[in-house]
Amino acid sequence: MAEVLEKEVVEEKVEKKASEPLFSKKNRKLISDPFNDNNPITVQVLGICSALAITVKLYPAIVMAISVMFVVAAGNVIISIMRNLIPNRIRIIVQLVVVAALVVLVDQVLKAFVYDISKELSVFVGLIITNCIIMGRLEAFALGNTPWKSFLDGLGNAFGYGVILIIVAFFRELFGSGELLGMRIIPDSWYIANGGFYSNNGFMLLPPMALITVGIIIWVQRSRNTKLIEE
């Protein structure tokens, strides 16, 4: 893995050229790639822990997605600006300090403005530090690219991560609690307690079902995008 990453860094360095339009084709690809061909969760299988832990309800998942988006994008930009100053040997420590600072920032903002959600996300906000996607993007991209490109890359990957998070949370909240964003979707009169036939699926609230849901997303994605299928 490390070799591959370094190679990517080298290649990107060579490609660096003079002025390039802000949204050139290559730059647009930085944003669009992580949605499908290079999705951090379904293709690279990174960031699974948080995808399992905070997708019981849609709202926390959205907050988490936004938090990660901020951390990745800002972290990428900062590291990219400093990339020529960071001694190679201690780069991981430097990256960690930057990410940790950003995560503390996010944590404080969440505590100040959406305290309930912050409590619900509990340790998982702090654990954004260990989210493989962030370190992966810093190592693989920001260290060898200009700030603008790194920003786009961070944004793209966070979007790719957030989309999966939101899809999983959508199904888990809909079938697990019959609600979306706390609003009742499945009518009360359907429930067995009220003389109906329906009952919430308790399995959806348990982490294994999040894993299975991610698995199903991977399945659907690969059957549509056949170049992802390994030999």
């Binding site: 009952s199 699926n201 308790g202 959806m204």
Partner: peptide
């Protein structure tokens, strides 16, 4: 197992 964890009350 699915039914057991999904619909424990049943």
């Amino acid at each position: 197992a699915f039914a057991f964890f999904a619909y424990p009350s049943f």
